[in-house]
Amino acid sequence: MLRYESLILAHPNITSDDELKLQEYFKQLATNAKGEFISFDKWGKYTLAFPVNKQDYGVYFLIRYEIPSSVVVSTLKDLDLFFKIKFNEVVMRYVNRRLDANVSLEYQKPEPLGSMTRNVVYDENKEDMADDSDDNERD
């Protein structure tokens, strides 16, 4: 059995139905290949490092599964066709990578790039607080 992971960059306006379809597809893929479905993680909405398909944001999914070595080529081909033909509009980019079976499944989620500068929300209360503190200092 070989352990694989797929990181998918999906359209920011992906619906919950499409997410379920994705998850079910990967479960089916693993079961059809007589493998094992390990995990399906949704990272959430991220600011992309550069626009992809004219989109500044994207939703990442990390999916892990195990498949026997004899059917690796055919299953990865199926996956490729699925992303390019059926889920063409939803999946913008993807990466398939083989993992070491001995290494633990822990990983570090990346921080969204530029989220601190872009997602600044104007808070009136904070502004008022700042003004008050300035006044107190003057007094």
Binding site: L9, A49, F50, P51, G58, R93, Y94, V95, R97
Partner: peptide
């Protein structure tokens, strides 16, 4: 290079 391909890291500073 893999991180760049999946848009986690930039290729260059100004893409716009």
């Amino acid at each position: 290079k893999v991180a760049r391909a999946i848009a986690l890291l930039p290729f260059c500073p100004l893409h716009r």
